[in-house]
Amino acid sequence: MKLAKEFDPNCERQLIAASKIDKYDKGIAQKLVGEGPGSMKLQLGCVAVLNRNQDEIDSNVSFEEMKERERQFFIKHREAFQNLSDEYKGVDQLVKKLATIQHSRIRSTLPETIEKLRNQIRNKRLELKNIPMAMTTEHECWSKFQSMIDAFRESIQAKVNGDYDCEIRSSMFNVNSNASGNTNNTTTEASSRTKVAFVSVSGSTTQ
């Protein structure tokens, strides 16, 4: 009870099952509805149930038989519970309350959970679209390698000529090319030798 008051001071999330109701005190009906000294006014309510005692457990008394004993108990002690609504009495009412609470919680939280999952699925699909296509053949690998060499050579040539914006334009071109899904492959033979141009400071080119 101390922890309940600490984490739920307004008694909004607590449901109490008052067991061992056969040992009830005077004024039990008022306490179950949150009235009188020592009681708690709970929004979810309090349900009185009759549990099996140790002798009944050892005798393997079934739950169905206990439900019948519980029903007879409330009839026998009608005076103590006469002003108490049926929703506060019996294990069947406790099960009904728990099912109602669970149903309410699912209805309030499930739509938000589903929407979060949908957003995650959309984001993952976008990530998959941005993943480059896998290179599965030797020809594709050589083509990619040749395009990298060409880009590196053009970058060096541009810097030698004083064009330092070349890399920016090249990056923009690559982004646009990836977004549109167009790829340019340079056809080379696996046995051919790669030619690399070396540029001198004066601007002349040697092979």
Score class of each variant (00 low, 15 high):
D165T: 12
T188G: 04
K5W: 07
Q43C: 10
H103Y: 15
T137Y: 05
L84R: 03
G34D: 01
R122L: 08
E154I: 05
F74C: 08
I106R: 03
S62H: 02
V175T: 15
R71C: 04
N130Q: 02
G38K: 07
V160I: 08
K67R: 09
R125P: 01
S147A: 15
S171V: 13
I149P: 09
N10M: 12
S155A: 13
D150A: 14
K31Q: 08
S192G: 00
S104G: 03
E35F: 15
N51L: 08
Q207A: 02
E127W: 03
S85C: 00
K195C: 10
T194W: 05
K5Q: 11
E68R: 14
A17C: 13
M66S: 09
A18Q: 10
E140H: 04
M1P: 01
K20S: 05
S19P: 07
L117A: 12
S171A: 14
T186R: 00
N174A: 15
E56R: 01
N130H: 03
K26I: 10
F81S: 09
E189F: 02
K116T: 13
T206L: 13
M40K: 05
T206D: 08
S108P: 01
K31I: 12
E167M: 04
Y88K: 06
F7A: 12
T186P: 03
A134N: 00
F73T: 02
Y24P: 11
L32Y: 07
L84W: 06
D55L: 14
K195H: 06
S171W: 10
L42P: 06
M133S: 09
T194M: 01
I131L: 15
S192N: 00
K76N: 03
R69I: 06
Q30G: 09
N182T: 15
L32C: 05
D22A: 09
S59F: 11
G45S: 05
G34M: 03
R52Q: 06
V47M: 07
C166E: 05
Q157H: 09
N182P: 00
K159R: 14
E154F: 08
E140W: 01
S202T: 06
A190I: 12
K5G: 11
T183M: 12
P37K: 11
E87V: 12
K76T: 04
N185A: 15
S62W: 07
D25H: 13
V160M: 02
E65G: 02
V47G: 00
A18C: 14
F145I: 05
Q82T: 14
Q54I: 14
M172W: 15
R169K: 14
Y164Q: 11
D86F: 13
A17W: 03
R193D: 07
S85A: 12
G38L: 10
M133W: 08
